[in-house]
Each structure stands twice: as C-alpha cells, then as structure tokens.
Design a protein around this nucleic acid. Structure first.
Lengths: 244, 244
DNA sequence: ACTAAACCTTGATATAAATCAAATATATTA
DNA sequence: TAATATATTTGATTTATATCAAGGTTTAGT
C-alpha cells in the first residue's frame, strides 16, 4: 500500500468526486471542504490483501477507483466474499468489533480515500446532516445484507446467479463486475456450479460474452429479482415483473 | 393488535426498563422522559402476523416482553426467518425501503413500545448522543448480519446448529429461545436436518432436554463459535477456544 | 508474441441435506 | 382430562450441488 498526499490538480478532481457520494449529500460545501482536507489517499495493487484490524483501521473509506472484495476466512481456511466494492462505495470498518476479522482483497489496482476515526467522530458530532447520512447508509447496508441473506437461504444455484445478474442489469451494469469465481464465492456456490447455472440460463435467453450480459428479450431475469432492487427497474410492476 | 395508553403505575415500570436499552444510553433523563412520553404500547397475540409495510410502520420498536421473528416470504411462499427478537431488542423498520416486505410473526404474546417516525427523526436531530447510539446500533446490526451470512455460507447443518447453540450459551441463554423449527428456518435448514444435527451433537456431549442445553464438559461448542461472539466468552483465548 | 499462470468449462462421481412418509411426543383447547 | 393440533423424530429415497479430474480458454508479464 502506498500513501499519497493529493496535489492541487488532484484535489479539485477528488473533491468533485466526493461531492457526489451519498454520505456527503445535503452538507454545505464549506463544511465538506474542511472535512475533506483531512482525507488521505491510499493506493493498493491488484492481489494485495489488507486486514481490517480495527486497531489500525478504525476509519471511513471511500472507493475512488478500482474494486475490492470484503472477505472473511473460516477455521478451515475457506474464504467467503461478504461484499464487493467499487468506485463510489463506502466502507466503515470504523464501526466493526475489534474481533471481527474481515479483510479487503484488491481485485484491481485501487485508490481509496480514508478518514481517521477521530475526524469522522467529530464530523458526526458537529454536523447533523452527516450523522443522518451515516444512519441512512448503515440502514441501507442492513437492508442489503438481509436481502443477501434471503437469497443465500432460499435460492438454488441458478436462482442465485439469476438474482445477481438481475441486480446488475437493473443497476445498469451489463458487465460482470468481477471474475466469475469471485461472484460464485459471494453467492455461496462453487465456480463449477456457477458455470453450470450460466449454461442453463443460456437456454432461457441469457448469454454472457466476455463478461457482457446479453438478454434475448430483456425480461428473462425478471423472475429472479427481489422487490427492493426491482423497485428501481423500468419494468417494475409491468407484466413481466415478478412483483406485478 | 391492541393499542394501549400506559397508566401511571405502568409508566414508571416501562421507563425503568427503557433506561437500560442500549439505544438510550448516555442521554440525559429529562431528554429521555420527554421522548418516552410519546411512546405507544402495542400488544400482540401469539400467532399474529404483522406486515412491516413502511407506510404504516415507519417506526422504532422496542420489545418489552415476548418474542417474535422477522420473516421474509419468497415467491414460492417459503418463509425464511431473518432474525429473532426478544425483550430489550430494538427494530427499526423506520429505515427500510417501502418495497422491502418483511413481516413480524409473533411467537408469544408480545408487548412492543413504539415511536413514530417524526418523533424519532426529531430526537435524532436534536440529540447527538441518540444519533450516535443509532449509528452504533445499526453498525452492530450490519456486523451481526455479516456474521450470519458467513455462517449460512460456510457451515454444514451440524456446524450451523453448533454455532447457534454456542451463541446462546455465551449470551447466557442455556434455553432455546424459540421452537426448533423456527431456529432451523433461521439457520436455513429443515427441521429434520436440525433434529439430526442435534442427535449427532449428542454424541459429542451436547444434550437438549426440554429446550435446556446441557454440556458434559462445557467446551463442546467452542469449535463452532465465531470470533466476535467468542470475545464475550469466559473461555475466550484459553486452550479449548477456537480462537486460541 | 510467447509463456506461465489463472480462470473457466465439462464430465463423472460422491455426498449432505432435502423431501416424503409415518410414528411419536408435546402443547393447546374444550 | 380428553381431544386435537402442532412439533419433533426417525427412516427411506431423491436430488442438487460439492468434489474430483482433465481439458480448454483467457489474462498477465516478460
């Protein structure tokens, strides 16, 4: 990991990016600028793994560029992917227990902005909107994890893959965000099952070429979609929708 | 569901209970009393099901008495248990998406205290400690859900049951909090598999009699324990501990 | 552009847990 | 307390997916 100090050119670029992050919406620019002045930049290389030991990592991170997976390793050494992060996402190991040992595994070269615990705490304390945004952010994480939970308990391998693809499609990612084996691990299945699920979906009109998802009709994934994700879909509550 | 207005005797009992809830720690009693004055009491009977439609239920609930399960039903009609709540727990459907359709299923006669959205929002806005407590509460939920997630992806049926029992043991519940089939659903397995897992655990020295968990040695469940839960265990980092 | 490594697919087989079915135990209600 | 409903256990069978194994493809680095 390399720490950098932003130069002037970068600063304006970085700040412009940060103004659009959900966590910072509705806050006066002068307050944000004061807070952003404290941010540090960390650069990670593909393949690096960073323990989220809260002693060193009681922080707030924003992903500026790149992709990483949040993982947890069990006693047997098996790794599971808890979630995936890319540009614009926020992570708050700030609030994790010191005994919760998750790691960040960098899938691409990645640039993170980070804030130290004290600075975040102070900003939460002094800025009501920021504290509200934190609440919204965390509540949203709770909801997403509950949905993931449902998917993991309920679905067959094919349904899980279908759900993942539907999710991506609705959020306008017609491209797989990471390699198939990482998605498989996130969905709690093996790469082999993932591959077989995809070949079964191919018969239903869902093709993946070079990580690009293509649909024959456009509604092939509707049956796999959850209601919260679906509410952002252009087909929501129209005839093909599962929640019609 | 029955709505009640607390009478004077109840009020002092209820308030005393509420002062101990994590969400209200570190807040001046006068501020709490003002907030608590707005609380309503809802009484539910065993077997009742209540949709958490956020239009009607944009609220904060505290469980005073009883037990309920938060459930989600899929397209096939299968029900999965997302989490279990009992006295002292808090639920904040306040922050759920209107499209996230979870229900509360009451397992015993239950008394909930509830606060309306506007009152909560105002208190969050005016009381910094309360907003911090909300952040902590939600962050803790995030962490617990991530742990549940790991358990659901990683463990065999026996390991899941072992984890659940270890969890209960460490939190001093040597009694199963709900019936076995509800726990099975929470763990994402069938009642049959749950039963077989228990009979396998019996060979390892874990017996369940009338919902009471008994351990021959006391360390039989250590191998199933996660690190965060384990950090509250008297055996943490001693020889039998999985995280030694 | 070449080579090595990482990733993906396909097939054969094994296996854990679901399903189906029936019996037993426990809890609830009249 | 009996009658009924609900929950739990146990056994037999099926099934989805993991595992094992090998071949093919893509990616990354020199």
């Amino acid at each position: 990991m390399i720490r950098m100090i932003p130069n002037k050119v970068n600063t304006s670029k970085y700040f412009a990016f940060m103004y659009n992050i959900a966590l910072f919406q509705g806050i006066k620019k002068e307050d944000l600028n004061e807070f952003f002045a404290k941010m540090q930049i960390e650069q990670y290389h593909k393949g690096e793994i960073q323990q989220f030991n809260p002693k060193q990592h009681s922080k707030l991170y924003i992903v500026f560029k790149g992709t990483f997976k949040l993982t947890n390793t069990n006693v047997d050494g098996d790794e599971i992917v808890l979630s995936l992060f890319s540009a614009g996402d926020a992570v708050t190991p700030l609030y994790f227990s010191p005994y919760f040992d998750v790691s960040a595994g960098f899938i691409e070269d990645t640039i993170l902005f980070h804030f130290k615990e004290n600075d975040v705490q102070r900003f939460v304390k002094n800025n009501h909107q920021f504290s509200m945004n934190n609440i919204k952010f965390l509540a949203n994480s709770v909801q997403n994890l509950m949905i993931t939970n449902t998917v993991l308990q309920l679905k067959t391998a094919k349904e899980r893959v279908g759900w993942f693809l539907a999710h991506g499609k609705i959020n306008n990612n017609s491209e797989l965000p990471v390699s198939k084996n990482i998605i498989a691990s996130f969905l709690g299945i093996t790469p082999e099952s993932f591959s077989r699920a995809l070949s079964s979906l191919k018969n239903d009109g869902v093709t993946i070429n070079n990580k690009i998802i293509q649909l024959d009709n456009g509604d092939e994934l509707c049956k796999y979609c959850d209601r919260v994700t679906g509410s952002n879909c252009s087909l929501f509550r129209t005839e093909p929708c599962a929640h019609y």
